[in-house]
Amino acid sequence: MHSAEIKAALQAYAGEIGIDQIGFASADPFVELKERLVRHRELGYESGFEEPDLKKRTEPTETIPAAKSIIAIALAYPSKMPHPPRSKEGEYRGIFARASWGTDYHHVLRAKLEKLQQKLLELVPVATSEIMVDTGVLSDRAVAERAGIGWSGKNTSILSPHLGSWIYLGEMVTDIYLPPDQPVTQSCGECTACMDACPTGALVQPGQLNAQACIAYLTQTKGFLAEQYREKLGNRLYGCDTCQVVCPINRKVNFTHQEAFTPDVEEVKPLLKPLLTMSNRQFKNRFGHMAGSWRGKKPLQRNTIIALAHFKDHSSIPLLQQLLQEDPRPVIRGTSAWALGKIGGESAMEALQLAQVSEEDEEVCAEIAQALIRLEKESSHREEKENVTFG
Rank of each mutant, 00 (worst) to 15 (best):
G136Q: 06
R36F: 09
Y77F: 15
R39H: 14
E231S: 15
A213D: 14
I70R: 02
R39F: 13
C365Y: 05
Y238S: 08
A309V: 05
A355W: 06
D241A: 14
R329P: 02
P206K: 07
E130K: 09
H40S: 10
C198V: 06
R295H: 11
T128Q: 14
A74V: 03
F287C: 06
P270S: 00
V173D: 06
A4E: 14
A260R: 06
A339V: 03
A211T: 09
A111K: 13
H107Y: 07
G344A: 01
H2F: 01
E89W: 06
C247Y: 04
A142W: 00
T262V: 07
E130T: 12
A226I: 05
P60V: 09
G44A: 03
L272G: 13
K55L: 13
Q370R: 15
G223Q: 04
K112C: 05
G223T: 02
L209C: 14
G296Y: 02
I368N: 12
S279C: 06
D264Q: 13
S347I: 04
D313V: 11
A66T: 12
A337H: 09
M172W: 00
H314N: 10
K115Y: 05
V126Y: 06
W338L: 05
W166M: 02
A97P: 05
I6D: 04
L178Q: 09
P318C: 04
E376D: 13
I167R: 00
I6Q: 08
A14I: 01
G148F: 02
K232D: 12
S347M: 03
D134T: 06
A111V: 01
S316E: 07
G341V: 12
Q301N: 12
P248W: 08
G150P: 00
A291Y: 11
P60F: 08
G344W: 04
D313P: 03
I64N: 04
E42S: 08
G90Q: 03
A147S: 08
A66K: 14
G153R: 13
V38W: 10
I70P: 01
E359F: 04
A67R: 07
L75P: 06
H2I: 01
S316R: 10
L113E: 01
I73V: 15
Q118K: 13
E42R: 14
I73S: 04
L233R: 03
E122D: 14
C198W: 02
K112P: 05
A12T: 11
V265I: 07
I317N: 01
D175R: 10
R286H: 12
R98P: 05
I131S: 00
H40I: 10
K112W: 00
L120E: 11
G18I: 02
G207Y: 11
Q182F: 03
A127S: 14
L237C: 09
F24S: 04
P274L: 04
P263D: 07
S358Y: 13
M172L: 12
A27G: 10
A74I: 00
L121V: 09
I373L: 15
I158F: 03
A337K: 10
V204W: 03
Q186M: 10
